[in-house]
Simulated scan of single mutants.
Amino acid sequence: MRQTLRVAAYAVCVRDDRVLLARSPAPGGSHEWVLPGGGMEHGEDPLDTVVRELEEETGYRVEVTGLLGIDSSRRVLGRGGLRGPVDHHGVRVVYEARVAGGELRNEVNGSTDLAAWHDLDAVAGLTRVRLVDVGLGLWRERPVDGRTHPPGH
């Protein structure tokens, strides 16, 4: 089975009890909310990745104020075909950041199509990826080991 590894960096930006999220198109024409951020380019530092991705996806220039933790997930993708299934391992570095400048805007021709602030109390009602909950858990709990759950879950 082929193996892939993707390392990415994301930010939890909370201001006035609201969190900054980006909306990503999902399969079937639906959408799901994600933490702003994304994949590292070869040779790029994760901190530089999160600053670049936040500006691309939201229009904001951010200042990273802390490292919240690392989320690691592993799953098998695909069901056969010519290349067969893939054992995918994702490593996501989660930072805390604050807006330092720029104007809120939507990404054009990218992986997201909308950026918006959401009340923290309303996040549970959003269609969102698991990483939103992981990031907010790290932000709230500040675990010493940087994890809110056992690895691989």
Rank of each mutant, 00 (worst) to 15 (best):
S30E: 14
E96M: 04
L104W: 07
G29E: 03
E55F: 14
V108M: 10
P143T: 07
R98G: 07
V7Q: 13
V123F: 04
R130E: 12
A124C: 11
R142Q: 10
G37T: 02
A100P: 10
R142A: 09
N106V: 08
P150D: 09
D145K: 04
G37R: 01
G135V: 01
T148V: 09
L77Y: 14
T65D: 06
R105S: 08
H31R: 13
G39E: 12
H89R: 13
E56G: 08
A122W: 09
D16N: 10
L67N: 09
T4N: 08
S73R: 12
H88Q: 14
R6C: 15
H31F: 11
V93H: 08
A9P: 00
R83W: 13
M40Y: 04
E96A: 04
G137V: 03
A115K: 02
G81E: 04
G135D: 01
D113C: 04
L20M: 05
V14K: 06
P150Y: 14
A97T: 02
Y60S: 02
V132Y: 00
P151H: 07
L77T: 13
D133K: 04
D145Q: 06
D45L: 15
G38C: 03
L47R: 15
G137E: 05
G69M: 00
P150W: 12
D133F: 04
G43N: 09
V7T: 11
L21A: 01
R18L: 08
G146E: 04
A122V: 12
L47Y: 15
V93L: 08
S24Y: 11
P46E: 05
V94W: 00
H149Y: 12
V50D: 00
R15T: 11
A116V: 09
S30T: 11
G38N: 02
D145C: 10
Y95H: 09
E63F: 11
L138G: 02
S111I: 15
E103M: 11
D17R: 12
V91Y: 07
H118G: 10
M1S: 13
R61D: 11
R23C: 09
S111W: 15
G146L: 04
W139V: 08
G28Q: 09
R15S: 14
V14D: 06
T49L: 03
D121P: 11
S24D: 15
W117K: 03
W139Q: 04
L54P: 03
L104K: 07
A116F: 08
G135R: 00
E41R: 14
G66A: 03
R142D: 08
V50E: 01
